[in-house]
């Protein structure tokens, strides 16, 4: 596609990219006749649920983005006032943007690499691997509880384990949570440590790769690195792609960790977008403004998702393209 991406409305871009993705089979007319009735029947559970429970709330939130609705009493139409305020007057909005982008850029690649590496490690029939999988998944299920907040703050505290190790290695202890330069790292490390869900999806993906292919590769004398690079990686690309998209979306929307561990501080360095939005909505009663923030976030995530879909054709390998 040669037209510059930036000139298209985002929803359209996502739409195009997605239609590309969802209706891939159209390239192969053989065997895939169009069948509207069957198609809609299959997607009807989602479609009905969407129309019943999501569509109206989404429409309402779009409307509210242009009002000063304050939760307790009805809002008045204020046009683009919310957006103007966001970009020109709200100092904290800028801070929350910086924090969020920093976090996404750090967490998404680190988490994916870690998850894939560990999934490879655990994709074996060695004895006891069951238990290791369970152990590795545990940080992810302890995820959002108050326990993690206390434990994490203690780990990175002035007398915490992390500083003890640092001192052992000859470094000066760092005030991780109090220093505006380092606080975000405690959350990045927490997120990477909770790599369980992408790991599990990778594992499931690895299970789907036919073992015949590995056998064939072995017979051809491929080294284990070659097997990974030639067989595993290409066949896993749909799953890598899925994990990438989902990590982008999820980490732009990151909320819980900052909410319970750092509460956005210090100096707003971990004031992630959704946390700020939530505070504006429920602590400051500015639901209209928060709705406007939500829709800007949707545009940002939509842009990066669409971009990923665009780029996916160069590296994602689907069985349906072959034939």
């Amino acid at each position: 596609m040669s037209e510059p991406i930036a000139t298209l409305p985002v929803s359209k871009r996502v739409d195009e990219a997605a239609s590309e993705a969802a209706s891939q089979p159209k390239r192969r007319s053989r065997g895939f006749k169009q069948n509207n009735a069957v198609g809609y029947l299959f997607i009807s559970p989602w479609l009905i649920g969407f129309l019943l429970f999501s569509f109206i709330p989404i429409a309402i939130s779009l409307y509210l983005a242009f009002t000063n609705y304050d939760l307790l009493s009805g809002g008045e139409w204020t046009g683009l006032r919310n957006f103007e305020r966001m970009f020109t007057q709200d100092i904290r909005y800028g801070r929350s943007m910086i924090a969020t982008f920093k976090y996404v850029l750090l967490v998404v690649p680190l988490r994916l690499m870690f998850a894939l590496a560990v999934a490879m490690l655990l994709n074996t029939k060695r004895r006891g691997v069951y238990w290791f999988r369970a152990a590795y998944y545990i940080p992810s299920i302890i995820g959002a509880s108050v326990a993690v907040a206390v434990m994490w703050r203690q780990l990175f505290g002035p007398q915490g384990v992390i500083n003890a190790i640092a001192q052992l290695l000859g470094f000066d202890p760092i005030n991780w949570l109090g220093n505006p330069d380092t606080a975000i790292w405690t959350l990045v490390i927490l997120a990477v440590w909770q790599f369980g869900s992408p790991m599990l999806i990778f594992l499931a993906g690895l299970r789907q790769i036919p073992s015949e292919l590995y056998e064939a590769a072995s017979i051809d004398g491929a080294t284990s690195w070659q097997r990974f690079y030639r067989v595993t990686l290409p066949l896993l690309t749909p799953i890598i792609f899925f994990n990438l998209i989902m990590q982008i979306i999820a980490n732009f929307r990151v909320f819980t960790q900052a909410f319970i561990v750092t509460a956005g501080g210090p100096l707003d360095t971990t004031l992630f977008y959704t946390l700020y939005l939530y505070r504006r909505a429920f602590n400051d009663f500015q639901m209209g403004y928060a709705s406007a923030m939500a829709w800007v976030l949707l545009l940002i995530i939509g842009f990066f998702t669409a971009l990923s879909f665009r780029l996916s054709r160069y590296w994602v390998f689907y069985e349906t393209k072959e034939g």
């Binding site: 929803s11 739409d15 198609g39 909320f255 976030l297 998702t305």
Partner: peptide
Amino acid sequence: RVKFVGSGIWFSIMLLTLMLPNQIL
């Protein structure tokens, strides 16, 4: 696996619903 009119649009709408913070809904 089924080809039908509007599948691309519905798919992207579906993904978009994932991008809106649910606190707002």
